[in-house]
């Protein structure tokens, strides 16, 4: 299982995948906001989403696992 952590402290703008979705490397999985900027978090590899731990509006830290892939 591959866990995708938040790359920086920020607020979740949107979660762009749901459990069961198949994603390809560099697909957007989550959009964060930090420093008044929208930051897209991309999937590091191909895989299937097995876990989504956050909702839009959550504040995340660098130790927060956003999404896990299989």
């Amino acid at each position: 299982m591959i866990q995708i952590n938040a790359p920086m402290v920020g607020k979740v703008v949107s979660v762009d995948v749901k459990v069961g979705d198949k994603v390809k490397k560099n697909d957007v999985v989550v959009t964060l906001e930090a420093m008044k900027m929208q930051i897209k978090v991309y999937a590091p590899t191909d895989g299937e989403v097995v876990e989504v731990n956050i909702n839009a509006g959550d504040v995340v830290n660098t130790d927060t696992v956003l999404v896990a892939l299989n």
């Binding site: 790359p7 920086m8 900027m37 930051i39």
Partner: peptide, 19 residues
């Protein structure tokens, strides 16, 4: 910093340079 972040992402989506 934002401009730099965007340039980094453009070269490699897995790169997060903002902070």
């Amino acid at each position: 910093a934002r401009v730099v972040h965007n340039m980094g992402t453009e070269a490699n989506p897995q790169s997060y340079l903002l902070m």
